[in-house]
Write a protein that binds this DNA or RNA. Structure first.
Length: 856
DNA sequence: GACCTGCTGCGGTGTG
């Protein structure tokens, strides 16, 4: 370890205790998972293990090292005779370390970090990148010879495994490091990584695997998954704890004038601009891309002098522009960057002074991740300023503050048996030299996700890749593998080529490039948005107002618009639910408020609103379930408030509607948000306690939900991704990209064909399972329903919409395209009522206080 | 005067 310690000393550093722990463990041949926030030397902790090992071995070797020594091959007479040129050639140490990261940009940065000690210690290691960023020439060369350390992505690893010659190259591998494992865990990319690792482990039983992760609710599980089934004794090593996080909230001056619903929060532009002004650099996180665009505009409008000091960053902005923004952020050029999760992790930039979270953070892990972007200096505190976009978000911030205090960090659940990923992997392995059935099955079962893979499932998957299952056997293009002499191989070079071009598990909506007339790429926008525009229409994108000139070859050509304003694109992104922890904490907060306890500034600021809720209706609490009934001209509204996050509410709402329709046929409109559910019926709908009890029952839960899933488009949509990953639909050669709707059309065709002719198709089962697990959070839903079933029901008839009901009502109106006039009227009336009541409340409190003073 | 939503990420053939 001496040279390593010296190296640290030269730089004026001292190794952390956890780093020494990792080195010792590495030396002992162990594997493990290191968890710590970013910026605490996790990278070096695992990198210097193999480096030190090499130095140790080098000491034992004669000076003139030859390749055969290092690789452990039999040492021949070559050693003593090694000519100087031979040494130079042989000095390149063979492939030893594989480094996997989830991001290309991170991979590029990592190569640089790994090279630093290699250069300083003058060891003859080569470190190279292997992602989609490297040229075809380099890729080709790497097929012949790998560097000492290769930094890559899960997808590129799969590609490597699809080449037969890789098996020999990988024989010398000693260590795999999976960076940002928490990002991969719980995704199909993670499963793909697990399968790749299972393969590498089989080739090198002594392989050491190290994971790097941020703090997570289920670290032990994360570690087990990475190590694979049946592997024990892996170490869980904790790095330094997350530095202190200081959360503050921008509280609207007059809560009674702050909207009850909405998500933009533009009322707070002024105070937020002041907060930005007060810090040297600010990172402003929003939850959606369109919010980024809107807030960028809003800040410039507020402070025109900031035009060159504010930048924006989100996933649809062109890569080149994003890298530029990142580089200037690192240089400290910006006053403020408005961004989405695109800056959550990945590339390293100098820490900013202040982080702002606009709107709900949805989870504690996410809040910590974002807060960690500020105050990197040792001993510094991460500061995050939360900005609400509607009143109830104050409660979420209060809950988040409590969550931070208790460090209740969300877990990421690993996937179980995603067969589409397995199908893809089988073709990959078949291309990479073929496989023998029993041997591969054992290997697959050593991957955590497939540890319980049944014989039946295995046979089905094999049948699917060799014949296309029972429905597609007439089509030779789906007989992708052929069995010859007990070995499965890819049936034709064409299939092999098409397969390589479709490796990966990330699927996306159809997007179009947005280019200026001169060809400069601004970014991408969804086809569905562009298709609603006609030439000459203006829209805001990448911080500019653009005019659509024409659409050609899946590209929208634009030019700067003369107008000042344009519509803001909508991207159909993911929808986060409030996390389990955060919703639990929110319910606890309401429990406290109900008995008059308000902890923290946020909760106190919210007091008038909660009192209003109590006055007009009732404040929901954990052991009872509040149901409000209100009649308006639109019909009968029923509101339920489980506070379980929007996905669970979506599932519950579908379930209620389904069960109601079974009681009596009717049309029900359903709307949900993170706090509750609204059922709206245009004809009178009377629901008594007994009716609600039948809606809340756990009996036949799975069956009923599956019926909902089958009746709706949910499974069909989910199947589209599965068909892509399993290689049923392929997207063609680069450059001749097909429109996404073609892919969709063909995946729909498969869905119909399988429904009719292959009812036992396990990929169809999988799509239903994914809808339940991922789209409706089934397990959480079941727990929620259990709570509802046990809870006391409180039915309240309200004369007007309560503060909790109003956001759902607003959402409902929006969904039904009610004119804005009507909307405005309604909102205004609500506001007036609110203001009157708030005034009353103030008067009452003042009286109360003077009474107490008198009593004292 | 409040409404208008919805994250991130990867990969790509062919042999003169």
């Amino acid at each position: 370890m001496k040279p390593i310690l010296d190296w640290y000393e030269q730089r004026g550093w001292k190794p952390f205790a956890f780093q020494r722990q990792v080195w010792r463990a590495y030396r002992a041949g162990r594997s493990g998972l290191v968890h710590a926030p970013t910026g605490f030397g996790k990278t070096l902790s695992v990198w210097l293990g193999p480096v030190a090992e090499w130095l140790r071995e080098a000491r034992k070797r004669p000076r003139a090292t030859s390749l055969s020594d290092v690789s452990g091959d039999p040492v021949g007479p070559r050693r003593s005779r090694a000519s100087s040129t031979a040494v130079a050639r042989d000095e390149a140490v063979p492939f030893r370390v594989l480094w996997i990261t989830p991001l290309r940009a991170l991979a590029t940065d990592t190569v640089q970090s790994l090279l630093a000690p290699v250069r300083d210690l003058q060891i003859p290691w080569t470190v190279e990148l292997r992602t989609g960023d490297v040229t075809a020439t380099v890729r080709r060369r790497q097929r012949d010879r790998l560097p000492t350390a290769l930094v890559t992505t899960p997808e590129s690893l799969s590609l490597l495994l699809s080449y037969p010659e890789m098996q020999t190259h990988f024989r010398t591998l000693r260590c795999v490091i999976v960076d940002e494992w928490h990002e991969l865990l719980g995704t199909k990319r993670g499963t793909q990584t697990e399968l790749g690792l299972a393969r590498l482990r089989k080739w090198n039983p002594e392989l050491r695997v190290w994971g790097l992760s941020a703090t997570l609710g289920n670290l032990r599980e994360a570690c087990d998954v990475l190590m694979g089934a049946g592997q024990r004794s892996a170490l869980l090593i904790a790095g330094p704890r997350q530095k202190k996080i200081q959360l503050s909230t921008l509280i609207p001056e007059d809560i009674s004038r702050f909207p009850w619903s909405g998500h933009l929060g533009r009322q707070l532009v002024k105070p937020l601009a002041e907060a930005i002004d007060a810090a040297r650099t600010t990172l402003l996180f929003t939850n959606t891309r369109s919010q980024v665009e809107l807030w960028y505009q809003a800040l410039i409008a507020e402070r025109p002098d900031w035009i060159d000091k504010i930048a924006l960053h989100h996933g649809s902005i062109g890569r080149e522009t994003r890298r530029e923004v990142e580089a200037r952020l690192d240089a400290g050029d910006w006053k403020c960057v408005v961004c989405t999760s695109s800056l959550d992790l990945g590339v390293d930039f100098a820490p900013v002074e202040q982080v702002v979270q606009l709107g709900s953070p949805k989870g504690i892990a996410r809040l910590m991740q974002r807060a960690g972007r500020s105050g990197h200096q040792p001993g510094a505190i991460s500061r995050i300023v939360c900005v609400p976009t509607h009143s109830l978000e104050l409660a979420e911030f209060a809950a988040a503050r409590e969550g931070l205090r208790r460090r209740t960090i969300e877990a990421r659940t690993p996937l179980e048996k995603p067969l589409d990923v397995l199908v893809q992997h089988l073709v990959t392995v078949a291309a990479g030299g073929g496989f023998e059935e029993r041997a591969l099955l054992a290997e697959i079962r050593s991957a955590w996700a497939f540890r319980d893979l049944g014989d039946h499932e295995w046979q089905w998957v094999l049948d699917f890749v060799t014949r296309g299952g029972s429905a597609l056997r007439a089509y030779p293009q789906y007989a992708r593998l052929t069995l010859e002499d007990g070995r499965y191989r890819v049936s034709s070079p064409q299939i092999e080529r098409a397969h390589r071009m479709n490796i990966g598990t990330i699927t996306s909506e159809g997007v179009m490039n947005v280019r200026m007339g001169n060809g400069h790429l601004l970014g991408t926008i969804e086809e569905s948005f562009i298709s609603r525009l006609t030439n000459g229409d203006c829209f805001t994108f990448a911080g500019r107002v653009l005019e659509l000139v024409r659409v050609r070859d899946m590209t929208a050509y634009v030019r700067p618009a003369r107008k000042q304003r344009g519509i803001v694109p909508r991207w159909n992104g993911g929808r986060f639910p409030l996390s389990t922890h955060l919703s639990e904490l929110m319910r606890a907060l309401l429990d406290a408020a109900r008995v008059g306890r308000y902890h923290g500034r946020e909760a106190r600021a919210l007091r008038p609103l909660i009192e209003l809720q109590a006055k007009w209706s009732r404040v929901p609490c954990s052991d009872e379930i509040l149901i409000e009934h209100t009649t308006t001209q639109e019909g009968d509204h029923w509101f339920v408030f489980p506070f379980e996050g929007r996905l669970v509410h979506e599932g519950l709402a579908a379930l209620f509607a389904h069960r109601l329709a079974r009681l009596r046929p009717m049309t029900i409109h359903v709307v949900v948000n993170d706090y509750g559910i609204e059922l709206l019926c245009s004809s009178p709908l009377e629901l008594r306690e007994a009716d609600w009890r039948t809606l809340f029952t756990e009996r036949r839960l799975t069956e009923d939900l599956l019926e909902c899933v089958n009746e709706t488009q949910m499974a069909r949509r989910q199947f589209r991704d599965i068909a892509r990953i399993a290689g049923l639909v392929v997207s063609g050669f680069p450059g001749e990209r097909r429109a996404a709707r073609h892919l969709q059309a063909s995946s729909e065709l498969f869905f119909d064909v399988f429904t009719d002719f292959d009812p036992g198709n396990l990929l169809m089962d999988q799509s239903r399972r994914e809808v339940l697990d991922r789209q409706l959070e089934f397990r959480r839903l079941a727990t929620a329903l259990e709570r509802l079933e046990r809870a006391r029901l409180v039915l309240v008839e309200t004369e007007r919409l309560s503060p909790l009901a109003f956001p759902l009502y607003a959402e409902q109106l929006r969904a039904q395209h009610v004119t804005s006039e009507k909307w405005g009227d309604r909102v205004r009336r609500m506001a007036e009522q609110l203001e009157r009541t708030a005034l009353q409340a103030k008067r009452v409190r003042r009286k109360g206080r003077s009474a107490t003073v008198a009593a004292d």
